[in-house]
Design a protein around this nucleic acid. Structure first.
Length: 550
RNA sequence: GGCCCGUUAGUCAAGCGGUUAAGACACGGCCCUUUCACGGCUGGGGCAGCAGUUCGAUUCUGCUACGGGUCACCA
């Protein structure tokens, strides 16, 4: 009776009932086994690699079961909110192929279980809080910060657990008159759960990733409504995941510590608990020891960094997948061309301890992923990347798309494709020399080659070259050139008897390579010449000769 | 400190009472080869420690050590 009065006193403006919302957001009509997951980022800055890690888990879980994957923005803490962060998240997730079935997607809310921004759900939270108060399961607390601090100090001095609970919970059993008076004085208040837990008893549950878990029951009268009327994470989580009918809550293991709170909350609210899936956090090595990768200290934690550095999006996702389900690698080797979404992702395969982020491994995957793409796809990606991060190269590239694609086709396809680069930013260095505007050769020849020989070869070469030659014929001619100036036509011959020759046919190829590309390392020289064309080849040889002669 | 989670090579990891303890990245060597890359072969390197259960423990139990997380009107 008193409780009802108290509820009215505190929330006179709340007129809807919890039943109203239960009806408004009915259980979803989904096929057997379909899972509903969500990612619920807090818009406090940039997109963190850990968020992507969790997102992949959610997305795969939902879509492998024909379920629903949605995006909820947890923006209840206006103090920490960074403007534009929510939109940034949305576009970033979309860039990485996260397709949301529902939620706060770009262009506004989509789906029947919204609003999907917590800042727009205040009335819902208050309705449930009011209900809890009416049932005697929650109560207002008018303690100031200093009073709370005083309690903590006393607890510390007495060697007792800190917190607002039991005998320390001074407003827990306050008379309604006292509340009325505080209200009349316009004192701010929070709403706290009236915990019925007993820490000497245990709460047991099974986590989809961690397995069987056991904790002492919660006895903290934690806050469920802040003094500004908005909920902290715990309460919003319980209400939202219930009303949005989430079946699997995937989140970082830092939430394990407050799991008993959530267990008690779901029970108090009369909600069925979702399946909890606590993921290990990605770690990094810092001074020889592991630690959780952090937004503040680690620039590599920002997913935008991976974009900027030109890591192919699909490669990052594949790397994340290997961290998540280590058998992904085996699967990929067995199914090199399959879409990664065909991989049978599973909670059972998820590791329980935090993996170190390994850039070398990521890079290897990048090279692999890129090598599997056709020239067209590589071209599109490079154009997209350079448009944003290297406009100069972009202009050069897009001037003649076919020319660029011809270059990118070198060594592509077949069972053993070349793996020349893994990052989009490496492409300029890789193929820039094909373009005169970027061709700035230094002509660094191997030291064992004599200037006279180089000049002789470069001068002679155009006369033997025939555009119609195939690779075989082309190489035969190189051998002829080699022989004519005292180099071995056959490499094995040379190795058998190195003193009899100045060098071997490989050296001749190197002379051409350096003259044409300005580098000692390049794609196949024959392919380079084919693309450059005879005229440009001749020009470059001439240019090189002039340079050597000084 | 309390509570919780974890610990297989430099890294990611299979393993689920009896295995010569997979595989991948990185590293060394060899082969292929007109450079490089690719590919192939090959090498080094590992169950944190100590008890217990057991005929037998990487696998089960306990303790220790180490690492991580959390103890807010932040998520």
């Amino acid at each position: 009776m008193d409780n009802l009065k108290l509820a009215e006193l505190l929330f006179p403006h709340i007129t809807k009932t919890t039943e109203y919302y239960e009806e408004k957001y009915p259980p979803r009509n989904l096929p057997e086994g379909a899972r509903v997951t969500r990612i619920a980022p807090s818009p406090t800055g940039y997109l963190h690699i850990g968020a992507l890690y969790g997102a992949v888990t959610d997305e795969r879980t939902a879509h492998l079961t024909n379920g629903v994957f949605y995006l909820r923005i947890e923006d209840t803490d206006s103090k920490r909110e960074v403007s534009g962060a929510a939109d940034l998240f949305i576009t970033m997730f979309e860039k990485y192929g996260m397709k949301f079935d529902e939620g706060a997607v770009s262009g506004g809310d989509k789906g029947d279980y919204g609003p999907y921004r917590q800042s727009e759900r205040t009335e819902i939270y208050q309705t449930f809080a009011k209900q809890l108060i009416a049932e005697g399961k929650a109560y207002p607390c008018f303690c100031t910060d200093t009073e709370i601090e005083k309690i903590r100090n006393e607890q510390e001095a007495a060697g007792e657990n800190p917190g607002y609970y039991g005998k320390w919970a001074v407003w827990r059993d306050a008379e309604i008159e006292k509340v009325e008076q505080a209200l009349a004085e316009k004192k701010p208040f929070v709403v706290r759960l009236r915990s019925t837990g007993d820490p000497s008893k245990r709460v047991k549950l099974t986590d989809a990733i961690k397995g069987d878990l056991e904790f002492p029951q919660n006895n903290q009268d934690f806050v469920i409504l802040k003094s500004d009327g908005t909920p902290p994470y715990h309460f919003a989580h319980a209400i939202d995941d219930h009303l949005m009918r989430t079946t699997h809550v995937v989140r970082g293991e830092e939430w394990l510590a407050t799991l008993p709170w959530h267990v008690e909350l779901f029970a108090a609210l009369g909600f069925k608990r979702p399946v909890f899936c606590h993921t290990a956090n990605i770690m990094k090595l810092d001074n020889g020891s592991k630690r959780k990768i952090s937004k503040r200290k680690d620039p590599e934690a920002d997913v935008a960094m991976f974009l900027r550095e030109g890591y192919p999006q699909s490669a990052l996702i594949e790397y994340v997948l290997t961290l998540l389900n280590s058998n992904f690698e085996d699967w990929r080797r067995a199914n090199p061309t399959a879409d990664k979404n065909e991989f049978p992702f599973s909670f059972k395969k998820m590791g329980v301890s935090g993996p170190l982020f390994d850039f070398e491994k990521l890079y290897d995957i990048c090279k692999d992923v890129v090598s599997r793409m056709d020239a067209e796809t590589v071209y599109e990606n490079v154009v997209a990347w350079t448009a944003e991060y290297d406009p100069e190269f972009n202009a050069v590239l897009t001037k003649d798309p076919q020319y660029a694609k011809d270059i990118l086709s070198i060594g592509r396809g077949g069972s053993k494709p070349r793996k020349d680069f893994g990052l989009w930013k490496e492409v300029r260095e890789y193929m820039g020399f094909f373009y005169n505007e970027l061709f700035a050769p230094e002509y660094c020849f191997p030291e064992n080659l004599a200037k006279e020989d180089i000049i002789a070869v470069l001068e002679k070469y155009p006369s033997v070259f025939d555009e119609n030659d195939d690779q075989q014929q082309w190489f035969e001619k190189l051998k002829t050139v080699a022989s004519s100036i005292g180099f071995a036509a056959d490499t094995k011959e040379y190795k058998k008897n190195p003193d009899a020759f100045k060098g071997h046919v490989g050296d001749i190829a190197m002379m051409l390579r350096v003259a044409l590309t300005g580098k000692q390392v390049s794609p196949d020289t024959f392919a380079v010449i084919r693309i450059l064309g005879k005229d440009e080849m001749t020009n470059r040889l001439k240019k090189c000769i002039d340079s050597i002669k000084g």
